[in-house]
Design a protein around this nucleic acid. Structure first.
Length: 466
RNA sequence: UCCCCGAUAGCUCAAUGGUAGAGCGUCCGGCUGUUAACCGGCAGGUUGUAGGUUCGAGUCCUACUCGGGGAGCCA
C-alpha cells in the first residue's frame, strides 16, 4: 500500500494502485443502494478525490455515516477509473478510518459559497476552502520562483535586520519595539522616557525596508536580494495595504536604471510564466470563479509575451495632459501622480504593465541618483492594471558629493547615515535595486481584489486577530 | 485619517413607521452511481451597541463599534 496525495490519486496513472489517503471531508453523499460518496481534499490540489465507501465496511453505520463536512479521515483502497462524470479516477475504499469529527451544527464552513469577508472572520478555517487553498499554492509557487530566479542569476540571498534603530529610513510610519513597561510609564505619567533603560539603549523600530542594508552587501558581493517581512504603521485602510507584508528587494552593484528596469521586467514575467505553467488547475479556478471578466489567464499570457511599456515621468504627464479623460485631480509636472492617473496609464491608455521612470527630484527620496538635468532622479515604478504600483525602485546616488548635497537639501543628518555614506566614500560604484510587494503580485496573478485575502493572517489598522 | 455605503436566523438576503420572511445550511423522513444532488417536513430572531423621536421603530435621528468601496501614504 502506497501513501499518496489526492493530486496523485486523481491522475490516471494511479489507476490500479492500492493506496492510503489522508485528508478532510469536503462533502458526503449517501446512496440508499447502500454506499456513500465521500469527497476528500488534502490541500495537494484544488480538486477532491471521490471515495466510494461501501455499506459492507464494518464501520459504515458507526463511522462513515457520521463523516460530515470538515471531518478528517484516512482511507485505504484501490484507485479505479471513475464510473461517474466529473473525475477521471476514484478510490474504492477497503477501509475508512474516521480521525476527527466536525460537528455539522457548529462547523462554520458550509458546502455553499461564503463571502470573502465572512471567511476573513474564520481565518483559521479558510485555508480549507477552494479559494484559499488555491491562493496558498500560488503564493508558494511564487516564492519558489523568486528564489529560483535570483539563484539562477548568481544573486546572494541576504538577511537584513527586522529590528532597526534608525528612525529615518524614510518610508513612513514605523512600529516601535520596546521592552519598557508601558503600563508603568503611563501610571507614573512619565513625560520623558530614558531609552538608556530600553533593550537597545535607544529607540528601536521594526524595519520598513531592507534597502539601505542590502546596499552594503551589494557593494561587496555584487548582486544580492532580500526576501522577508516588512512593517508599516501607516493608518492605511485600502484593499492593497497591509501593516505587515512581505517584500523582495534585489540590489545590484554596477547596475544602472535601464538594467534595473530590465531585471524588474524579466523578474515579473518569470513569476507569471511559472504560475501559468505550474498552477494550471488553480489558475483556471481564479480565471473562472474570481476574475470578473474571466480573462485572467489570457491577460497574463499576453503580458508574458510582450514588452512592458517604458515611459518617463515627463512623457506620462504629457500623455495625461493631452488625453480627453476627466480626472478629479489636475495633472501638473512636478506633482506626484495620483492613483487615477496611474490607473489611466496602465489600464486605459496602454492596457499593459508600465514602467515609469525619471521622476521629479522634489517628490522622491534622497538616495535616488540625480540626473544631469538637475530636475529629475532615476527612480522607477512598475504599474500593473488592477493593482497599481507593484514595484518601486531606483538607481542609487553613488557620488559622495551629490548624496551629501541631497541629504542637506532634505535636512537629513549625514552622521545618522554614516555607514551608508561610507559606501560612497570607499570604492563607490553605480548600483540599483527595487522592492516588489509579494502580496500585490499575488493579487495580480490571482485577481483577488483584497490584499487581506492573499496573506494567511492579515494585519491592518485595528485588526490583529489570530 | 477623510468621503460614501452597509450591519435582520448558522450563511446570503427581503420586509410603504403598524404581528419579522425567503433561499441555502443544520436536524428528521423520502429518493438516487451521486457530484452546488433532488423532494417533503421541523426547528431556528432582544433586527451590531447605547441613547433619542413616536401611541408604536428593523424602518426616522445622534453617537459608537465592526465590515465594504474609494482617496491619501506606499509595496
Amino acid at each position: 500500500m502506497e501513501l499518496i496525495s489526492v493530486r496523485e490519486a486523481r491522475t490516471e496513472q494511479a489507476i490500479g494502485k492500492s493506496v492510503e489517503l489522508r485528508g478532510w471531508v469536503r462533502t458526503r453523499r449517501d446512496s440508499k443502494a447502500g454506499f456513500s460518496f465521500i469527497e476528500v481534499n488534502d490541500g495537494s490540489c484544488l480538486g477532491n478525490i471521490q471515495v466510494i465507501a461501501d455499506g459492507k465496511l464494518e464501520n459504515y453505520e458507526t463511522d462513515v455515516k457520521g463523516l460530515t463536512v470538515g471531518a478528517s479521515l484516512r482511507v485505504e483502497g484501490q484507485v479505479v477509473a471513475s464510473g461517474g462524470k466529473g473525475q477521471a479516477t476514484e478510490v474504492q475504499a477497503t477501509r475508512v478510518i474516521a480521525v476527527g469529527g466536525a460537528d455539522a451544527e457548529s462547523y462554520p464552513l458550509q458546502k455553499k459559497q461564503h463571502t470573502l469577508e465572512k471567511l476573513r472572520e474564520w481565518a483559521h478555517l479558510r485555508p480549507r476552502t477552494n479559494t484559499f487553498g488555491a491562493v496558498a499554492r500560488v503564493r508558494n509557487q511564487i516564492c519558489r520562483s523568486i528564489h529560483q530566479f535570483y539563484q539562477e542569476r548568481g544573486f546572494l540571498y541576504v538577511h537584513t535586520p527586522i529590528i532597526t534603530a534608525s528612525d529615518c529610513e524614510g518610508a513612513g510610519e514605523m512600529f516601535q519595539v520596546t521592552t519598557l513597561d508601558l503600563a508603568t510609564i503611563a501610571k507614573r505619567e512619565m513625560a520623558n522616557i530614558d531609552y538608556k533603560f530600553d533593550f537597545f539603549d535607544r529607540p528601536s523600530y521594526l524595519t520598513v525596508s531592507g534597502q539601505l542594508e542590502a546596499e552594503t552587501y551589494a557593494c561587496a558581493l555584487g548582486k544580492v536580494y532580500t526576501f522577508g517581512p516588512t512593517f508599516r504603521a501607516e493608518n492605511s485602510n485600502t484593499s492593497r495595504h497591509l501593516a505587515e507584508f512581505w517584500m523582495i528587494e534585489p540590489e545590484m552593484a554596477f547596475f544602472e536604471l535601464p538594467d534595473n528596469m530590465q531585471l524588474a521586467e524579466d523578474f515579473l514575467k518569470r513569476l507569471f510564466r511559472d504560475v501559468l505553467e505550474h498552477c494550471q488547475e488553480d489558475m483556471a479556478f481564479f480565471n473562472e470563479r474570481i476574475d470578473e471578466s474571466k480573462t485572467l489567464i489570457e491577460r497574463l499570457q499576453k503580458i508574458v509575451n510582450a514588452d512592458f511599456v517604458r515611459l518617463s515621468y515627463t512623457e506620462a504627464v504629457d500623455i495625461l495632459l493631452a488625453c480627453d479623460h476627466k480626472f478629479d485631480y489636475p495633472v501638473k509636472w512636478g506633482m506626484d501622480l495620483q492613483s487615477e492617473h496611474e490607473r489611466y496609464l496602465t489600464e486605459k491608455h496602454f492596457d499593459s504593465p508600465v514602467i515609469l521612470y525619471n521622476y521629479p527630484r522634489i517628490i522622491k527620496p534622497f538616495y535616488m541618483y540625480c540626473n544631469d538635468d538637475g530636475k529629475t532622479v532615476r527612480g522607477m515604478d512598475v504599474l500593473v492594471p488592477g493593482v497599481g504600483e507593484i514595484i518601486g525602485g531606483s538607481q542609487r546616488e553613488h557620488r559622495l558629493d551629490v548624496l551629501l548635497e541631497r541629504m542637506a537639501e532634505m535636512q537629513l543628518s549625514a552622521d545618522d547615515y554614516w555607514w551608508y555614506v561610507d559606501l560612497r566614500r570607499y570604492g563607490t560604484v553605480p548600483h540599483a535595486g527595487f522592492g516588489l510587494g509579494l502580496e500585490r503580485v499575488i493579487q495580480f496573478v490571482t485577481s483577488m481584489g483584497n490584499i487581506r485575502d492573499v496573506i494567511p493572517f492579515p494585519r491592518t489598522p485595528g485588526s490583529c486577530d489570530f
